[in-house]
Amino acid sequence: MKQAYRAIADKAEYVHEEKRSTFTALLHPVRSREEAMATLQAIRLNRPGASHYCWAYVLGDALQPQAAAFNDDGEPSGTAGRPMLNVLMHREAGDCFAVVVRFFGGVKLGAGGLVRAYGAAVSGALDQARWYSVEPLATVRIATAFANEQKVRHFLQVQGADHVQAAYGERVEITARVAEQQCEAMAEALAHLTSGQAKMVVDS
Results as ranks from 00 to 15, higher is better:
residue 1 M to E: 12
residue 2 K to I: 08
residue 4 A to N: 14
residue 5 Y to N: 03
residue 5 Y to D: 01
residue 7 A to Y: 01
residue 10 D to Y: 10
residue 12 A to D: 01
residue 13 E to V: 15
residue 14 Y to E: 10
residue 17 E to W: 07
residue 21 S to T: 06
residue 26 L to I: 15
residue 31 R to E: 13
residue 34 E to R: 11
residue 36 A to Y: 00
residue 43 I to M: 10
residue 44 R to N: 02
residue 46 N to R: 15
residue 49 G to F: 12
residue 54 C to A: 15
residue 59 L to Q: 10
residue 62 A to I: 07
residue 66 Q to S: 05
residue 68 A to P: 01
residue 70 F to A: 09
residue 71 N to R: 08
residue 71 N to D: 15
residue 72 D to E: 12
residue 75 E to A: 06
residue 75 E to P: 09
residue 78 G to F: 02
residue 79 T to E: 05
residue 82 R to H: 11
residue 84 M to Y: 01
residue 87 V to P: 00
residue 88 L to W: 05
residue 89 M to Y: 02
residue 94 G to T: 08
residue 94 G to V: 07
residue 95 D to G: 03
residue 98 A to F: 03
residue 99 V to M: 12
residue 100 V to R: 00
residue 100 V to W: 04
residue 102 R to S: 02
residue 107 V to T: 15
residue 113 G to D: 03
residue 117 A to I: 06
residue 126 L to F: 02
residue 129 A to I: 09
residue 132 Y to S: 08
residue 132 Y to N: 09
residue 134 V to N: 01
residue 134 V to R: 01
residue 136 P to K: 07
residue 136 P to I: 03
residue 140 V to K: 05
residue 148 N to R: 04
residue 150 Q to L: 04
residue 152 V to Y: 03
residue 154 H to A: 14
residue 159 Q to P: 04
residue 163 H to G: 04
residue 165 Q to E: 15
residue 167 A to S: 15
residue 168 Y to N: 06
residue 169 G to K: 09
residue 170 E to S: 10
residue 178 V to R: 07
residue 182 Q to G: 02
residue 183 C to T: 12
residue 183 C to Y: 12
residue 185 A to S: 14
residue 188 E to K: 15
residue 188 E to S: 14
residue 190 L to H: 00
residue 193 L to W: 07
residue 193 L to Y: 05
residue 197 Q to Y: 08
residue 200 M to I: 13
residue 203 D to W: 09
residue 204 S to H: 09
